[in-house]
Design a binder for these strands. Structure first.
Lengths: 110, 110
DNA sequence: ACAAATATATAAGCATTTTATATATAATGC
DNA sequence: GCATTATATATAAAATGCTTATATATTTGT
């Protein structure tokens, strides 16, 4: 399992990128997909995920549409235009961050 | 400049690794070294750094010794035994985290 | 003299995450 | 038939961790 501390600040980016890749997804699906892509190492909790989704929606980065699967409500999230471009920026930012931090964490004593 | 959100959770790791590489350092020196190693992209603030240093000390991962440079107090931090091994674990954890998140953030739509 | 750099430190406020809780349906195993 | 697990969304209190603001004091360069 990945240390939780490190995940801080990346949740938004993960959600945006998954939506950019998959068109539309619902909350539960997002947690499952992350678990799958990370080989079980990253497990998003709902208490963290839903506030992020609601915040992204409030900020106009994603839209929702409700669907009924039998009697069960399912809420699909889709990126808006601004959400899509923001997604790309966030992913670039992450890899830039990794490169930069690598300079700091790679050196070993002389 | 690196997005602040992403740095969350890595501060501890940065401090531990720098101390592991450099033997002993003082707070101000740590911020300067990080700025230098990251080509100005990462700037630690004192409000973030000192609480981390104090916490690491309280947890027994680092020790301090005070020195006087003229009339100015300078506080040197050194890793303890547990701090040294924890440092290695934390750095490994970071790169593991990066690899894992790369699996999540790399895929593009079919 | 004055400004900028050096040096440590605390505290209020803010954002984000964890943990706990609530609710309900559908599928699977025994 | 019944229980457990998986599916599915959501809120709220508490904890964590960082930013911003503030305080204080010395040393160096001009």
């Amino acid at each position: 399992m990945i240390s939780n501390d490190l995940l801080k600040g990346t949740l938004r980016t993960i959600v945006l990128k998954l939506l950019a890749d998959n068109g539309r997804m619902y909350g539960y699906e997002i947690t499952k997909r992350v678990e799958e892509l990370s080989a079980g190492k990253i497990k998003l909790t709902f208490g963290a995920l839903y506030p992020v989704l609601h915040k992204l929606e409030a900020d106009g980065h994603i839209q929702t549409e409700v669907e009924y699967i039998g009697k069960r409500v399912r809420k699909y999230y889709t990126l808006t235009e601004t959400g899509r471009s923001w997604s790309e920026r966030k992913v670039d930012e992450f890899f830039d961050f990794v490169n930069t931090l690598t300079y700091v964490l790679k050196p070993t004593p002389a």
